[in-house]
Design a protein around this nucleic acid. Structure first.
Length: 429
RNA sequence: GGAGAGUUGGCCGAGUGGUCGAAGGCACUCCCCUGCUAAGGGAGCAUAGGGUCAAAAACUCUAUCGAGGGUUCGAAUCCCUCACUCUCCGCCA
């Protein structure tokens, strides 16, 4: 959520930065509403003040046993206008809130200007794609060839966009999550957390999935009123740790990590990546979240990216770092780096991590603050990034580590997690 | 699933219709005192939004005592609905 003061005082700037994201902001609607708000709110608050003082006078008079009917009549006179004013103020503020919730964050000045993914900027590249002296298979073929990846079973049990892993491949998948968590907690200073996989609507609103992106979520009806939502990323529970909190300044930065499944409806992605593990309704991810002092959030973003990069480097997977352009970034982000891992069968780099600085966009929704050196509450900055997506890391390993005979080598850093196993061979039968 | 008790400021906790945005305590900030430390004395100290202004400071208004609704001139206090927490019993991994 943007600062409403900014929309009031610097509408040109806001409109220009939003335009950079391809968003047209209808200022006239906002300004007309805000003007009416000012007028109605001022008038209503004056009436409230009048009512309050009259009521106090009534109380004082009654305690002295005096007659209060004149005072009561006076209050009754303003009753109708007061009630109407209160209703109207609430309506207007609701409408303003809706506008604010609907606006994306302003891109940071270092975010490349552009309209689509074609305008993203490659920042750096790491590793050299392996030269294969045999015909590379895609990860699906490798996994199915091993007899350890079973989409038919998944389709029977659940449906499309699910998968079943078996035996050493399932273990490799588990090893990946363990490895990532271990690196982030022991080397990068993150605190591991185990969190709910279903959250309430307030949490989804806090991190920005609601109200705009409900169709991307799985919801679970619950009781008469409420609903649980399956988390699309651990960013949601982790970042909501600080919702409605005023943190002591010395507790910053807060660095949290969790390994969770993520659930996405993938509404609107029909036909994209339909085959394989790339795009699933359920996948595992190790998420990194940082809650930081506003002055440090861009340093924090760089370090966060490097933490995710460490994982790919240790796994010896070639990747590149992309700075997303203004038109391709997620709604709440001011700046985003994507990590893209080399996928040999596609001859392309594919997203495996997305690291974003939300500045105060989420914090404002969350009312997540710290006490600054003046003793005043001030919004924190929030960041998150995948460190990294486990499912896609498995894809990358299946393809990059495949051998001509159909077997799969185990990356060195994962071997301890597999009891020293160095190669996975096809399952018997 | 049954029965009961709760939810008040950064924290603890008092408050059952009127001068209560809320006693008291802790923590914190400033000052005084004490050659350090400890102790003591005094003052200050909620959050959000609005107005006076372009802004800062200051002043002022409004809202907020789990959430929403209701009763009332007036609600932390009374009524209704919901959420959450805790205790006991039952059940369960």
């Amino acid at each position: 959520m943007l600062d409403i003061q900014l929309l009031r005082t610097q509408p040109d700037f806001v409109a220009e930065r939003l335009a950079a994201r391809g968003v047209t902001w209808d200022r006239s609607v906002f300004q007309a509403l805000d003007e009416e708000r000012k007028e109605v709110q001022t008038r209503t608050q004056a009436l409230q003040a009048q009512r309050n003082s009259s009521s106090k006078a009534i109380g004082a008079a009654k305690s002295k046993g005096e007659d209060t009917s004149a005072l009561m009549a006076e209050v009754a006179k303003i009753g109708e206008e007061l009630a109407a004013g209160e209703v109207r103020v609430a309506e207007i503020q609701g409408a303003l809130e809706e506008i604010l919730l609907g606006l994306p964050n302003l891109p940071h000045e270092t975010t490349p200007q552009g309209e689509s993914e074609h305008d993203n900027v490659e920042v750096r590249k790491w590793g050299t794609p392996r030269q294969f002296d045999f015909e590379v298979k895609d990860h699906t073929a490798v996994g199915e060839g091993l007899g350890l990846l079973d989409f038919a079973a998944a389709a029977k049990i659940a449906g499309a966009r699910f998968s079943v892993l078996k035996g050493p491949l399932a273990r490799l998948h588990r090893a990946l999550g363990q490895f990532m968590l271990d690196v982030h907690t022991t080397e990068h200073g993150y605190t591991e957390a185990y969190v709910p996989y279903m959250v309430n609507a307030d949490s989804m609103r806090g991190t920005g999935q609601l109200p705009k992106f409900e169709e991307d979520l799985f919801g679970i009806p619950r009781g008469e009123s409420g609903k649980f939502y399956l988390i699309p990323t651990a960013e949601v529970p982790l970042t909501n740790f600080v919702r409605d909190e005023i943190l002591p300044a010395e507790s910053l930065p807060l660095k949290l990590t969790a390994h969770t499944p993520c659930f996405r409806s993938e509404a609107g992605s029909h036909g994209r990546d339909v085959k394989g593990l790339i795009r699933q309704h359920q996948f595992d991810k190790v998420e990194l979240v940082q809650i930081v002092h506003p002055e440090q959030s861009y340093e924090a973003l760089e370090s966060l990216v490097s933490h995710a990069e460490t994982i790919l480097q240790r796994l010896e997977l070639p990747y590149r770092v992309i700075s997303l352009c203004s038109g391709d970034m997620g709604n709440g982000s001011a700046k985003t780096y994507d990590l893209e891992v080399w996928v040999p069968a596609q001859g392309a780099y594919r997203e495996i991590s997305s690291c974003s600085n939300f500045e105060a966009y989420q914090a404002r929704r969350l009312q997540a603050r710290f006490r600054n050196d003046k003793g005043r509450p001030e919004l924190v900055h929030t960041l998150n990034g995948s460190g990294v997506a486990v499912g896609r890391a498995l894809v990358a390993i299946l393809e990059n580590y495949q051998e001509a005979d159909g077997s799969l080598r185990v990356p060195g850093v994962l071997q301890p997690y597999l009891g020293g196993q160095t190669v996975i061979f096809a399952a018997a039968g």
